[in-house]
């Protein structure tokens, strides 16, 4: 589940990838993936409308894909993801190819490139026109904790950037202290 959580965190709302990942894993419900996302996760889609359109038809498409592992006549399965049979470890590395799934817009298939448990790339092997809008490899900006930022010392700065302060708010600001000190 660690890897699954990480993968979910990175691809987040990219519905198509979650569906394809489901096809490979066959166990995690998309709701489960979403609830595992860290708060403030920045995996996002840049094009809301196409993403919505793409995720709507994906619901029926999951049915055959999710059923594939229990079925002996899997129609959609290409190469099963190597990580699927056993719980993946956080340090997993390699390329994991998802099953091809059918959607009303055409076949969808992706491969995840994983390095030390972190998805570094998503390769689109087969895609629909809609999918091209909604796939985003990883978020550009990362969430970090405040503690990761080097403690800022006002003595080292010459000016302060902050939300627009009024003349009154200025009096309580670090900027005001800097100006008084005349540094």
């Amino acid at each position: 589940m660690t890897v699954r959580g990480t993968v979910g965190g990175i691809v987040a709302s990219t519905a198509i990838i979650i569906i394809a990942w489901q096809a490979g894993q066959s166990t995690a419900a998309s709701n489960g993936l979403r609830s595992a996302l860290p708060v403030g996760s920045t995996g996002t889609s840049t094009a809301t409308t196409p993403n919505t359109q793409a995720s709507t038809p994906s619901t029926p498409a999951t049915t055959p894909a999710a059923a594939a592992p229990s079925s002996t006549t899997s129609s959609a399965a290409a190469q099963p993801a190597p990580a699927a049979p056993s719980p993946a470890k956080a340090s997993a590395s390699g390329t994991f190819q998802g099953d091809a799934i059918q959607t009303p817009f055409g076949n969808m298939q992706v491969a995840l490139v994983v390095a030390s448990g972190k998805v570094t790339d998503v390769k689109v092997l087969q895609s629909t026109n809609y999918a091209q809008y909604s796939i985003q490899v990883s978020s550009y900006a990362d969430p970090i904790l405040r503690g990761e930022v080097i403690k800022a010392q006002s003595a080292k700065v010459q000016m302060v950037s902050g939300a627009t302060y009024t003349s009154q708010g200025y009096l309580q600001s670090v900027q005001s202290a800097l100006d008084k000190a005349g540094i």
């Binding site: 405040r146 700065v157 708010g169 670090v174």
Partner: peptide, 18 residues
């Protein structure tokens, strides 16, 4: 170089980052 502090939204007397 010029170094700019980013105000802490929770405390005007503190900086979030420089």
């Amino acid at each position: 170089p010029w170094t700019i502090g980013v105000a802490d939204p929770d405390d005007p007397a503190l900086l979030l980052a420089e």
